[in-house]
């Protein structure tokens, strides 16, 4: 049984201009100690999914089972008993800390709210947490504005792990940081994961960071997951056209490769989630779209090797190999030999 198991989750927003289908039927399992990356364009519903898991946004449909407890419909009181198991790290190290509270207070707050330990035990835990995230011990009485972005993110991390959560949702936790600081925080996150046995749902639009940290990666497009696969497999063989486009757009650190590589440019820009296109949601931008794609929605189908894809053109052949669309052979979908069982 997975630690966190999400089924058919939907979260919609009613706005004056219509319903926003921010998360529209998502299935996802996260195992104990596993890091799942969640990538996709801005506005595709990544944060909404993260917030819905914490019930900061009430899902409209579906279920969230956390540690064998269905928390989807729990009342506030009951929910409070399970809250500590999932925590969140936010994107903006400036907006996510109360500017008027001291650092000690910010980290102690979750402990106080959840009635954790005596006053002394809490102070000890805060000191331990400060050390864990690499902040000087004299931080207790200081205010967040006295810290740089990276250090603030450490404060946010200390707050998130204060209650010993099993799973931490990192919503663009390193996106706002400078390159040289980002590496520090990524290392901190992986160290904490190994030491405390945490699971992460690591939301990011930066594929190179996700590749570094995640065991498994979900690709989301307009409220739906279009591909899930083990990290190595996804990077070796992205099947969904959208995943291929994302991968092709990732900046590479080698000028020669960067100049020569062929970019697959999507045809258009992200449609509005207010009225997502019918059929395959990606068909308006997909370079391979067929008439069928416009009419019929492809389900997320599991293929062999823990990879699932939602695309009509990705099919498992009788011999076990996988046929998928690529730029290499524009005319016909190519049979992939790597997909064949040994």
């Amino acid at each position: 049984m997975a630690l966190l198991s999400i089924r058919d989750l939907m979260a919609h927003f009613e706005t004056p201009r219509g319903t926003v289908y921010a998360v529209d039927g998502v299935n996802l399992d996260i195992g104990s100690g596993e890091t799942v990356g969640l990538v996709g364009e801005s506005g595709c519903g990544k944060s909404t999914l993260g917030k819905a898991i914490l019930r900061l946004i009430e899902p409209n449909f579906g279920s969230i089972v956390l540690d064998s407890v269905d928390i989807t419909h729990l009342k506030r009181r009951q929910l409070a008993r399970h809250r500590h198991k999932v925590q969140m790290i936010f994107q903006d190290p400036y907006a996510s800390l109360n500017p008027r509270a001291t650092v000690g207070r910010i980290i102690e707050e979750p402990l106080m709210v959840n009635g954790w330990g005596s006053d002394r035990e809490r102070k000890e835990r805060v000191a331990w947490l400060l050390e864990k995230v690499g902040l000087p011990t004299d931080s207790l009485k200081r205010h967040p504005h006295e810290y740089s972005g990276g250090q603030r993110q450490r404060i946010g991390i200390a707050r998130a792990i204060a209650l010993n959560p099993k799973i931490v949702i990192c919503d663009e936790a390193v996106s706002a940081l400078d390159v040289s600081i980002r590496a520090q925080i990524i290392n901190l996150l992986t160290d904490l994961r190994d030491e405390l046995g945490l699971s992460y749902l690591f939301i990011s639009h930066d594929l190179s960071v996700v590749e570094h940290i995640a065991d498994r990666v979900c690709v989301m497009y307009l409220g739906k997951i279009v591909e899930i696969a083990e990290r190595e497999r996804l990077w070796a063989m992205p099947l969904h056209p959208y995943t291929q486009i994302l991968m092709a757009a990732v900046p590479v650190l080698d000028p020669k490769i960067a100049r020569e590589r062929k970019k697959i440019i999507p045809r258009d820009e992200l449609p509005s989630p207010l009225n997502p296109p019918g059929g395959c949601r990606f068909h308006t931008r997909c370079p391979y779209a067929q008439p069928k794609c416009r009419d019929e929605e492809p389900p997320l189908r599991p293929l062999q090797g823990r990879q699932s894809v939602a695309c009509h053109l990705v099919t498992e052949q009788a011999d076990g190999s996988i046929a998928y669309p690529t730029m290499a052979a524009e005319a016909a979908p190519k049979n992939d030999v790597r997909g064949a069982p040994a």
Partner: peptide, 10 residues
């Protein structure tokens, strides 16, 4: 987000 964080901690 700090308000969201407060809600997340219950």
């Amino acid at each position: 987000e700090f308000v969201l964080a407060s809600r997340a901690m219950g």
